[in-house]
C-alpha cells in the first residue's frame, strides 16, 4: 500500500507528466484559458488514463511482450514491435467512448471542449503514460495507480495554469510575448516550483 502511495505522489508531484516530461503540452496550451474548460478536460484525461493504462498493460502482458503468447502455446513469439499501433488503437477507441458518454450526459461540457475532445487521443500524456509504465516495469495495480495519478498531476497543472492566465488578462505584457510566449515562461516557473518536491520519499 505504501508503495502505491509512493508511486502516486511521485507521478503527481515529483515527476509531473507535464512539467517534468513535457507531455500533453498542446492541449495544455490550447485549453488553459478558462478554468471550467481546463477542469473538464483534466477530468476527461484522468478518466481516459485510468482506463487505458490497465487495458494497455493487459495487452502488453498477455499479447505483445517477449514470450507473452506462451499461454497460447507460442513461447517464442515476440510481438513487441506492434506496441505502438496497439496502444494507440486502444486509446483512440476509449476516447471515442468518452466522447459518446459525454455527448449524452454532459452536453454543455461536450460543446465547451469541442475539437479538443477527439484530440485527447493524440494527447502525448496518454500514450506517454502507457509507454512509461512499460519501461518502469509496473504490475497491473501499479499501472492503474500510475495512470490515474499521472492524470491527476496533469489536471493539477492545467487548472493552476488556467487560474494564472485568468489573472494575467489584466497585466500589461510586451506585445511579442503575449499568448504563447508568456505561457511558456510561466510554465517554466511552475516547473521550477514543482521541482522543489524532488527528494520527497515515502
Amino acid at each position: 500500500m505504501v508503495e502505491l502511495i509512493s508511486i502516486a505522489t511521485k507521478a503527481i508531484f515529483v515527476e509531473n507528466i507535464l512539467l517534468a516530461f513535457f507531455l500533453g503540452m498542446c492541449s495544455f496550451l490550447a485549453c488553459s484559458k478558462k478554468i471550467e474548460t481546463a477542469t473538464g478536460l483534466g477530468l476527461a484525461v484522468i478518466f481516459v488514463l485510468g482506463v487505458t493504462a490497465p487495458v494497455n498493460w493487459l495487452i502488453n502482458h498477455y499479447l505483445l511482450r517477449d514470450g507473452a503468447l506462451a499461454w497460447l502455446g507460442y513461447p517464442n513469439v515476440n510481438l513487441s514491435f506492434l506496441q505502438f499501433i496497439c496502444y494507440i488503437a486502444t486509446i483512440a477507441a476509449m476516447v471515442q467512448l468518452v466522447e459518446m458518454v459525454m455527448d449524452k450526459f454532459t452536453p454543455a461540457l461536450y460543446q465547451a471542449l469541442g475539437i479538443f475532445l477527439p484530440l485527447i487521443a493524440v494527447n502525448c500524456a496518454i500514450l506517454g503514460t502507457s509507454l512509461f509504465m512499460g519501461t518502469k516495469g509496473y504490475d497491473f495495480t501499479e499501472s492503474t495507480v500510475f495512470g490515474l495519478s499521472s492524470g491527476f498531476g496533469w489536471l493539477l497543472a492545467i487548472v493552476a495554469m488556467a487560474a494564472i492566465r485568468t489573472k494575467l488578462q489584466y497585466s500589461n505584457i510586451p506585445h511579442g510575448l503575449r499568448g504563447l510566449g508568456i505561457t511558456m515562461l510561466i510554465t517554466g516557473l511552475m516547473a521550477l516550483g514543482f521541482m522543489s518536491f524532488i527528494g520527497i520519499n515515502l
Binding site: P174, R178, G181, T183, L185, L189, A191, M195
Partner: peptide, 26 residues
Amino acid sequence: VLPPGAFILLGLIIWVQKQSSKQFEE
C-alpha cells in the same frame, strides 16, 4: 539542463520570433 530551462528558453525564442515576424496575439 532541467525541464524549467527548456520552457523558459522556448518562451524567449517565441518572443524573438513573434517580434521579428510581427505576428502578435491579443
